[in-house]
Design a protein around this nucleic acid. Structure first.
Lengths: 131, 131
DNA sequence: CAGCATCCAGGACGATACTG
DNA sequence: CAGTATCGTCCTGGATGCTG
């Protein structure tokens, strides 16, 4: 029921001054890529900590290349921590940081929305295409 | 703090059976593209209804081509309704549907997260790159 | 086991020009 | 005003093969 947070009735480009739109775009671009959410959700599901091969099995269809690069980006962003154990064969474990965990809640919001409404979206698409 | 919703301790591919992962991915892919969130947020900010040229001004940097195709996708997905007024010069208004409005809350969750935490992400990136 | 290097195809997006 | 058409570019991501 809230009004769109009035900053002026017809204020052009209002969102783009509030709250660093670049940050929003970058965030959305990141979790909007092909694998990031699945890796995040899988890591959570595996208890917040897992090794490379576990994630590989947990995310069907992902290639080593994509899992590796996705994890590297997550690590660079401070969302996961990579821990290398100097053994043979090598073992690497990835653990979600508090920052990473904090992203789970808003992410879950979108997952829930998709769960609840995607059928409607599909129907809308069908109606639209039937013309 | 909730546990990761136990479906089995080491259940491979668990998310991928729950809740239509395709839907989640498609949703994220859509709002993760370059313009969709900005168009949605701008449309909300303009009161949930606006014409093409208003949106063009509200989303700095967007081209006619991208605004047009973004709106077309949103219309197809049932998130906005396009209304054409048979006048000269032509007038077209776009209005958010209830479905579209319902997407605002989960979306806002991500916007808020970005607002609150992006600085930390940037710092993590700097630390990572400084090596 | 946990990657990286390389190559390649397709799609996203920008720039520009034209139209009902 | 509100688009469409066309072209070119960059980037994402898949496939494959190699390595510490």
């Amino acid at each position: 029921m809230k009004k769109p947070s009035q900053a002026g009735p017809l204020d052009p480009a209002a969102i783009c001054r509030s709250s660093d739109p670049l940050a929003v775009r970058e965030l959305l671009t990141k979790i909007g890529d092909k694998w990031t959410i699945f890796v995040i959700l899988s890591l959570d599901l595996l208890g917040g900590r897992a090794r490379f091969s576990e994630l590989e099995r947990a995310v069907p269809g992902i290639s080593q290349r994509m899992l590796s690069s996705t994890l590297k980006t997550l690590e660079r962003d401070g969302l996961v921590i990579r821990e290398l154990f100097p053994e043979v064969p090598p073992r690497v474990e990835y653990e979600m940081t508090d920052l990473g965990k904090s992203l789970l809640h808003p992410t879950q919001g979108l997952v829930d929305w998709a769960k609840a409404n995607w059928e409607q979206v599909r129907e809308a698409q069908s109606r639209y295409d039937a013309r």
